[in-house]
Amino acid sequence: MNWTWFHKLGSPKWFYEISGRWLPWLSISAALLILVGAVMGLAFAPPDYQQGNSFRIIYIHVPAAFLAQSTYISLAIAGIVGLVWKMKIADVAVQQAAPIGAWMTVIALLTGAVWGKPTWGAWWVWDARLTAMLILLFLYFGIIALGHAITNRDSAAKACAILAIVGVVNIPIIKYSVDWWNTLHQPATFTITEKPAMPMEMWLPLLIMTIGFYCFFAAVLLMRMRIEVLRRESRTRWAQAEVARQIGRSA
C-alpha cells in the first residue's frame, strides 16, 4: 500500500489545499442528506406501534449519539497519531473535534430528555444510555477545559491527547458499569434505541440521517481546522498569501 498520502497529511499546506477541495462536496451532501432524512423521518416513516409519533425523535437522537461516541474515539485515534508520528494536523484535529463532539452529546441528551417526557412521563430518567451520554459530556468538558487551560499550544495538544486516550480506555468500563448499576437499581424500562425488527421505511431515514450527521461532522471539522491551520502557519509564505487572497475577496 502506498503511504505517501499519510505523510503528506502531516503537511499543513497540503491539508489546506485538499480540504478546500473536499469541503464543498461534504457540506452539500451533509445538507442534502439531513434534509432528506428529516423529511422522510418526519413525514413518511410509519408511527411506532408503542410510542406513536414521538419515536420520530430517534432520527436525531440516534445519529447524534452515534456521532458523539465515535467523535470521542476519533479524538483518541488522532491523539495517538499526534503523539506517535508528531503530526501537527492530528494535534489540530483533537482540539477542533472536541467541541463538535460535545455539541452532539448535548443534542443527544436534549432529544433524549424531550423523548422521555411522553414516554416515561418525566424529563429525565436515570436510564443507562442517557446516563452514559451525560458522563460522555463530562469527559468532553474535561478535554476542552484542559485544552484552554494550557497556554503552550503543543503541550495543550499532547495533554488533551493523553486525556482522550485515558478516556477512551475508560468508556467501555463506564458503559458496562452504568448498565450494571441500572439493573441493580431498577428493572429495565424500554429505551429509546430498542427496536424489535424495524421495517425498511423506519430504518432507511435513520441510515440517511446517520450518514448525513457524519458528513456534517466532517465538514464542520474541516472548517474549524482550516482556520486553526491558517492561524498556526501565519508565519509561512503560503498562509500569508492565502490570507491576503481571502482579504482581497471579502473586501
Binding site: 458522563i135 463530562f138 469527559l139 468538558f141 474535561g142 477545559a145 484542559l146 486525556l163 485515558v166 478516556g167 475508560n170 468500563i173 463506564i174 458496562y176 458499569s177 452504568v178
Partner: peptide
Amino acid sequence: ALLILPLYIP
C-alpha cells in the same frame, strides 16, 4: 476535579 471525576464513575 473536572478531568478526574468522570473517570472515577466506574
